[in-house]
């Protein structure tokens, strides 16, 4: 058993661009869930729309730098369309509608009907060359010490995506620390009270959904650029649920919680992969019980159990204030 390798694999995954993209998406989900109290279970749709908006624009002959704002604006529009019918309804209706809409959208994107635009199940590849052309690091070169290395391509992607994380966190911090953010938190606590005090609750929720949607799109675009690939089956509902795990793990309603959550989650998730691979190679009975594919599935079982335990025993997450979570609402 090579535990150093396990930690290395977890660590390299943790600092990678995928973690940064998840952190961005978690920050946006946190604005909606942690600060406004909105149960958006269709986060993955905003990511998908952002990524496809970008990829399709490039496919149609536009530049990547046009595609990115197109993707973001499409997601804002989706937030508006989704919010208008549902934000007046109770929280559970929003949850049901958002998950349903996200899945319906994925099915449509995947269908032969939309194929002229989306290329169906095969998706769109190789639309982000313009981004990698700007890479100042030689793509093939390797950076790091010993086996703790990343390629030049990854390094470039990491620098950009973690910069985006920083910017998004600063933006949310500015918003949340303002009177606007205070109204959002008031709505989370009791929307009728906010309404009785003259606050346009519907308008604020819509803003939360649209701003969150835009940031979600940014996350989807980062992932798509990193993979140079968009395919509909990357946007299954389970990605939304994993983002919830990340937000709750880090601490819903805290500025840095989602980022910490993403780092820890990715470290554990990929460290576990490496640990299982190492165990299967070195310990006979582990290999006998679980195939590598099954080990991946066991990991997802643990994600589910982890979410339940977190919610029951530490709902404030890692960054949250225990006192705050113990306050009696009634």
């Amino acid at each position: 058993m090579d535990f150093i390798a396990v930690i290395r694999d977890g660590f390299l995954a943790m600092i990678g661009p995928v973690t940064a993209a998840y952190a961005v998406s978690a920050v946006s989900l946190n604005l909606q869930f942690g600060y406004t109290g909105l149960l958006n279970f269709g986060q993955v749709a905003f990511m998908m729309v952002g990524a496809y908006g970008t990829a399709i624009t490039v496919e149609a002959g536009g530049s990547l730098w046009l595609g990115i704002p197109v993707g973001i604006l499409t997601a804002v529009l989706l937030g508006l369309l989704l919010g208008l019918p549902t934000l007046r309804l109770r929280a559970d209706y929003l949850a049901i509608t958002t998950i349903a809409l996200a899945e319906a959208l994925r099915l449509i994107v995947r269908s032969s009907w939309a194929e002229p635009l989306t290329n169906g199940v095969f998706g769109i590849q190789g639309f982000a060359d313009a981004f990698f052309d700007l890479n100042p690091f030689p793509g093939g070169a390797v950076y790091g010490v010993g086996t703790w290395t990343v390629t030049g391509r990854s390094l470039w992607m990491m620098i950009v995506s973690w910069t985006v994380v920083l910017l998004v966190v600063l933006l949310i911090r500015r918003l949340i620390k303002s009177p606007w953010g205070r109204v959002m938190r008031a709505i989370r606590e009791d929307e009728d009270a906010a309404r009785s005090l003259g606050k346009n609750v519907f308008g604020y929720k819509l803003q939360s959904l649209m701003i969150g949607g835009a940031i979600g799109a940014v996350s989807g675009i980062l992932l798509a650029i990193e993979q140079q690939n968009v395919t509909p089956d990357a946007y299954l509902p389970r990605l939304t649920f994993i983002l919830y795990v990340i937000v709750i793990l880090g601490g819903a309603g805290t500025i840095l919680g989602p980022v910490i959550g993403a780092l820890v989650f990715q470290f554990v998730f990929f460290g576990f992969d490496s640990l299982m691979a190492s165990a299967q190679a070195n310990i006979d009975w582990v290999g006998d019980i679980l195939s590598p594919a099954e080990a991946g599935q066991v990991k997802l079982i643990l994600v589910g159990v982890g979410l339940m335990l977190l919610m029951i025993f530490r709902p404030q997450g890692m960054m949250g204030d225990l006192n705050e979570s113990l306050i009696d609402d009634h």
Binding site: L175, P179, W180, A193, G253, I327, D328
Partner: peptide, 24 residues
């Protein structure tokens, strides 16, 4: 309907109608 996880002062501020910082 007190806004439980806002401080008392924040509760009061939410009721203010004139704060331009409440717009985006």
């Amino acid at each position: 309907k007190s806004l439980a996880r806002l401080t008392v002062m924040e509760n009061m501020h939410v009721a203010d109608q004139t704060n331009p910082g409440e717009t985006l």
